[in-house]
């Protein structure tokens, strides 16, 4: 295993089932997003640093838009996972606070959690970090509209089998 391989850090006190599966959305694949774990209304993802994702060639730091895209997809996946019918979701809004610059040339990880689910809306929070989940690069919060359309996303195929409750 080389240093650049993705390895999702432990999240203290949070039970995550590890998986390793490329994103099924074209944009997710475009930025190299990998699903790395799931838990109760949670999804974990990772992406490798790549020069094409850089926001400033002088610093080699990932563009803020990459972080936002990662948070959007991770939280969207968590929204689908959290619902029973598994229909597609659509982002209503999201806010991302960039807490500190991402470390240059470092892989990025993200964990999104649905903290409130209503009939039509999922409320999420998400953190993106390099190695230490306690020191997030960015924190995201926002909402998804559930059952936005009748299409069914297949992120829950493969290892993302619907979890049996209780």
């Amino acid at each position: 295993m080389s240093d650049s391989d993705l390895k999702f850090p432990d999240l203290p006190g949070i039970d995550i089932t590890p998986v390793f599966q490329d994103s099924r959305s074209p944009m997710g694949q475009n930025i190299g997003l990998v699903y790395m774990g799931f838990g109760d209304k949670r999804i974990c993802t990772g992406l490798k640093w790549h020069e094409s994702l850089v926001g400033n060639a002088e610093t080699d730091v990932l563009h803020g838009g990459v972080v936002t895209a990662m948070i959007d997809e991770t939280a969207g996946g968590a929204s689908v996972l959290a619902t029973e019918h598994k229909f597609s979701v659509a982002t209503v809004d999201l806010r991302v606070d960039y807490m500190r610059p991402a470390a240059p040339r470092q892989n990025l990880y993200c964990m999104a959690h649905i903290y409130r689910l209503t009939e039509r809306i999922a409320f999420f929070n998400a953190q993106a970090f390099n190695e230490d989940p306690a020191k997030p690069i960015a924190v995201g919060t926002g909402t998804f509209m559930l059952g936005a359309n009748a299409s069914v996303p297949d992120i829950l195929g493969g290892p993302f089998k619907v979890q049996e409750d209780g």
């Binding site: 959305s25 074209p26 944009m27 997710g28 930025i31 838009g65 936002t68 895209a69 990662m70 948070i71 959007d72 997809e73 969207g76 597609s88 659509a90 982002t91 999201l94 359309n149 299409s151 069914v152 996303p153």
Partner: peptide
């Protein structure tokens, strides 16, 4: 983002 519709990714 959603290939079935298709719709662009929020990201």
């Amino acid at each position: 983002g959603n290939a079935q519709l298709p719709a662009l990714h929020g990201g």
